[in-house]
Amino acid sequence: MANYAMLIDPDRCTGCGACRMACQMQWQLAPKMYYNRVEFKESGKYPNAKMEILPVQCQHCEEAPCLNVCPTGATNKGHGGIINVDSDNCIQCKACFYVCPYDARVIDQETGVPGKCKFCAGFISQGETCVSTCMNDVRVFGDLDDPTSKITKLMKEKDVYQLLTREGTKPSIYYVGNKLELSGK
């Protein structure tokens, strides 16, 4: 078995958008269809103010609300806990879109299917494109069941947190650094 997860360090992110673009090219998405985003924030008062950036994508939750509401099983859990969308089985009811607390679903304007980050399933051996294109090494992807993986080691060393833990979703995406709140919907 595998337990895929991602560790994101927002402190390193400079909001360049390469992750979004790389993903769009990888999955041949239309310009306004994207699987990851950043939230730009600011805190403090001039001149002691600072900019903060939070990268967000599908959290591949262990208790995924989208999985529970999907009437057709189009949303399903696959190998390593990856949440997949089988577009052939999707009836475009958008329940997953509305229920996702992370606002991680984006409706494909052509097909009506709410798409999202796939953790680059099928490309895992080559590395997630949002990971590999990033000049700032914001993301680390890996298998938490593999004790030798980089992510397992980092998770042991660092204080990590998850977004919206109160939702009880148990996300597979972890964050390090100063705790940032999701602005979301």
């Binding site: 390469a18 979004r20 790389a22 090219m25 590999s132 294109t133 990033c134």
Partner: peptide, 23 residues
């Protein structure tokens, strides 16, 4: 042309590309 990735040798980008490069 479907996608691009960075050349790992090139000293300006070492395998990385920014959003413009993908664009």
């Amino acid at each position: 042309v479907v996608k691009a990735e960075g050349n790992p040798i090139h000293l300006k980008n070492k395998g990385k590309i920014c959003a413009r490069g993908h664009g």
